[in-house]
Design a protein around this nucleic acid. Structure first.
Lengths: 205, 205, 205, 205
DNA sequence: CATGAATGAGAGTTCATTCAT
DNA sequence: GATGAATGAACTCTCATTCAT
């Protein structure tokens, strides 16, 4: 029993190690450099060993993707301490952007990458993604209830907020902001959120 | 005489055919499935033939990318017939979204795809992209001049508009909208634009 | 008749042009860059045109090879003006080395290259090469007759002279002299000939 | 333990096998036929397997090239048992020729072949080649010191000896001796060395 | 006479994956 | 549990050559 437990833990550790190094490769070298062989080199095990913990490469990507959502959700939950719905929404936006720009590879995997995403996003139900979306939706709902935002279709409202922040970060992450000087990009991202949100005020809808 | 012309046309046609089928592969199977061999299969010619029309694979991608911007810019220019800056901006948004959803593979190549984009986006000046951005920027500038939008940093303003529409379409194109029923997605996209834009009114900034 | 003649001449001219440009490519870019396509580009005709004048690539190489022997033989004949056999042999050596170092691509094709050489050297009788060899053989024969060199097998004697000069130039041409400073190589080549030949003196054999 | 050792040996064997068959292809079909695929066919493994033992094709050629110099140097060292410098030099010559004619493909790779040689010869220092050259140089130096050969530039003297033997064997290896009956070629080669060397006698320089 | 268009064959190389040990 | 060894299936790209026009 204790043995079984220890094995379980070691197995988790190994999985964790693989994921950590895989993500390290993403970070350092980009998606196309993440090969099973490279991960194996990083963890100093053989490629075959990786297949003891993950059935294939996509599963590794899926696990990283879930890790990313775990992290994002944790950050989302932190905004609950802000009570005013609009302030919370603004903070929510800042938190989302910060996550994306701090962990662009996770964000890419979660919201942009196509390659293996198809599997988790379309075939399965993308539960992790859904949870984060629901959290945003609730925030938007609160804003409507509080009269900050007009009603109508709640999904439309939530989606428009999500689109704004996703647009900001995904244009940056995928390098489509070459018209802005590199060092100003972050400020423009934050400015853009601020600029859009500033128009939202109680009773002014 | 006529012969030269016909040949010219055929050569163009062949290039066009290659691009069309390459784009078809993008659509059906995703970027990583677009290989010279697969394109060759599609056009029922040998791989070597493709090299008679394009010097390498990147050139094919670049040509598609430019085609996309040509088409987008044509659509953008059409909105000039709308004189009121705000109406024009709204129409601009609708036109952008329509383009992206009608030609998702082009949009992907232009604004999302990473792989070969690096070359055109970073190393070269991404002139085509810039031109489209300048066009939007001017529209936003007009809106500010007309008192529809608050001033401040013009790039921030333009980028926030761009981000909104890019966010909408890229979440759809990359399949992150599985929480919405497939058939409602287009309506939600348009609704999201409308929802965000409706808050903009003269003097209400 | 006149027409036939002109055509003949033009045909010769075209062949000559092809050979000239092919050799130009050898010179500028090295053997592996000499492709039918590159030659075609040089002469500003299509690749197919080349096949009107030569049945295949090897034939072009063969023709160049023969041109080379023509040139070498012309230079060899020039030494006939030196009457003393030993002086003539020494001069013969210098002339041979000068040819090889001035036209290394020709020399390579004639005496080193394997690729297409097999055909001309082995299957056919390598007539051109034979003629040059006979010329040297005669010179050596004269040296023996004049008491400068010991008798014995005439071919052995001739071959040993040929080997010396061929060794000198082929080590240089194929880049095996990296132990000598680049700028001294030519002097060493000439010195080596001188050094070896200086031991030959009448009655001192 | 024993297992590790056995594996080591097998790995070496595999490398050796690859090299052996690669050399076999050189022999039978010439340089340009030595492709990864052909080697793979020869060893009855897949092309990919070869990349487990060598990082690329050049490394295979380089390994063969080094093997050749190892073998040559071993044979060179053997002549040290001959004490008289001139006798040693003559034996040195015979040993060099014997090596070249017994292992013509190695000799070709080491001293004639152009293709990949560039790398080892020019860019790197061609250490292996240098070592063999230094060995010869020392032998010539001893001959000069003993009064067998005239002094002057030592490199010139050494190069002229090297050129003679290289000339002999490279004309044979690259098939330029079609004027001699095949079966007499070896005798002519040895005769040529003898003929040239016989002129060297103490005090007769 | 000249060629545009096409291709078969083949090059080196990479990678996810398998499996006997 | 771990892995060394192996590979099938790809990849992009090049070249000499052919042939209908």
């Amino acid at each position: 029993m204790g043995t079984v437990e220890r094995r379980e833990r070691e197995k988790r550790n190994m999985k964790g190690l693989i994921l950590k190094r895989a993500m390290g490769l993403f970070l350092k070298e980009g998606f196309e450099k993440v090969t099973i062989r490279r991960i194996a080199d990083e963890i100093e095990y053989s490629p075959a060993t990786i297949y003891l913990y993950f059935t294939n490469k996509d599963e590794i990507l899926f696990a990283l993707h879930e890790q990313g959502f775990e992290e994002l959700y944790k950050r989302q939950e932190a905004v609950l301490s802000t009570k005013d719905p609009l302030d919370r929404l603004k903070r929510h936006g800042r938190v989302y952007i910060a996550f994306a720009l701090e962990k662009p590879e996770y964000y890419d995997l979660m919201f942009i990458m196509r390659a293996p995403a198809r599997k988790f996003v379309e075939e399965e139900e993308w539960t992790a993604g859904r949870r984060s979306y629901e959290f945003l939706r609730k925030n938007v709902e609160d804003c409507i209830a509080a009269g900050y935002l007009p009603g109508g279709n709640l999904d439309v409202a939530a989606f428009s907020v999500w689109s704004l922040v996703h647009g900001i970060v995904s244009l940056i992450i995928r390098g489509r902001c070459s018209m802005f000087p590199q060092e100003k990009i972050k400020a423009i991202a934050e400015g853009a959120l601020e600029y859009s949100m500033s128009r939202i005020r109680k009773g002014k809808m």
